[in-house]
Design a protein around this nucleic acid. Sequence first.
DNA 1: CGATTAATCTATTTATTTATAGAACGTGCA
DNA 2: TGCACGTTCTATAAATAAATAGATTAATCG
Lengths: 220, 220
Amino acid sequence: MDDARNIKDLLYEQVARIGKVFSSPKRLELVELLCQGEKTVEILARETSISMKLASAHLRALRESHLVETTRQGKNICYRLADKSVADLWVRIHTLAEDRLTELQRELQKIAVQPDDLVPSDRDSLLKAARKGEVVVLDVRPTEEYLTAHIPFARSIPLGELRQRLDELPRDRSIVAYCRGPYCLMARDAVELLRREGYSARQLRDGVAEWGFTRLFPCA
Amino acid sequence: MDDARNIKDLLYEQVARIGKVFSSPKRLELVELLCQGEKTVEILARETSISMKLASAHLRALRESHLVETTRQGKNICYRLADKSVADLWVRIHTLAEDRLTELQRELQKIAVQPDDLVPSDRDSLLKAARKGEVVVLDVRPTEEYLTAHIPFARSIPLGELRQRLDELPRDRSIVAYCRGPYCLMARDAVELLRREGYSARQLRDGVAEWGFTRLFPCA
DNA sequence: CGATTAATCTATTTATTTATAGAACGTGCA
DNA sequence: TGCACGTTCTATAAATAAATAGATTAATCG
């Protein structure tokens, strides 16, 4: 009957391999980035502010857990999620963290744009308003991420180009900006810029992963 | 702009606290047990084959992640999941592990009862057959766990009492035994016993957590 | 009160994880 | 061929985690 113990230990150890992926802050950040589409090591290292060597090590751990896959594209090696359910799990975990950890709630409040930050309405009414043109949904992520997947009716203006392209946005309509998700600060910066320039702008906390729109390959 | 790095680091670190819960085999086993209902430290330690001191330490980690809560019941302290979504997350994680890790698939095959182990039909048809009385769904977990939550139409005969209570089971109908989930060996042992005794028995891999029936408190 | 149960506090050992660094090694591209 | 991208190997330092143990504390029950 000690045999049963050994079997169980092996089984839970395997599941823990998946858990370990989500137990390191940097790996979580890498997973969130990969939810936006496939990326090279160079980009992943830059976005997470770590060395390519360390990024490579973390990505190797991700690959060994079979949650990410690679393909070579010329000189670069591209990483992507092995399955959409990995993005789902990331969303589940960070949502549970936001529900249960008051510390996280406090941190998130700190980074919220001060007046009226949250988008109040539900997704359906936001989509309806976007379809009618009553609000402008603005995707401020890099263009490639927008091309891979974006929220319906969203326009793409990467944060870095926003200041130069302000005239593309209407001043008489409400603008709802979004980026990679709740822990990405690009939409917040965009809203701050837009408000300083006199636009009516709000922030959407969720990104494509939270909407369930994660795509594993760019659209061909 | 180095400020943004610090903020992000704090945010992902908080989410990683939740991930760490699911990164240790013993903690996973504790979570799975708590999916069956609230339990004392003594029971949790016994079921996971660890000392009460170590169990206490792991449970403390779980409590500090706010995923489990405690109440004192007389001399004992009872642990339970703080939210149903914790059970959901456990199911998501072990399902993803089974989907992605060939090593885990192999281990699970090893412990499968040899001929025709899996319950082939989907849940709806199993329930339909159980309602009509065409199959007997048998819950072999301890009685308290059955009382807290069980699959509809299931009868309760704890594994330890099965040999003495065989006459309660019909020999002319198919028996489907289940226990705590895919990593619990009780249903497998029950099926082996039943088959040796001439019954037509199969195993249901899923438990109450997988069916979404986890309850945080015992029914009053 | 004393006995029981469980948490806590303090150590200690062992193992694992994270991050950084230098050197070497492939692979594909120009 | 040489450059660029990325991996691998080795080494190392700091930090963290897992498991076990002894002694203590705290609460409850009989």
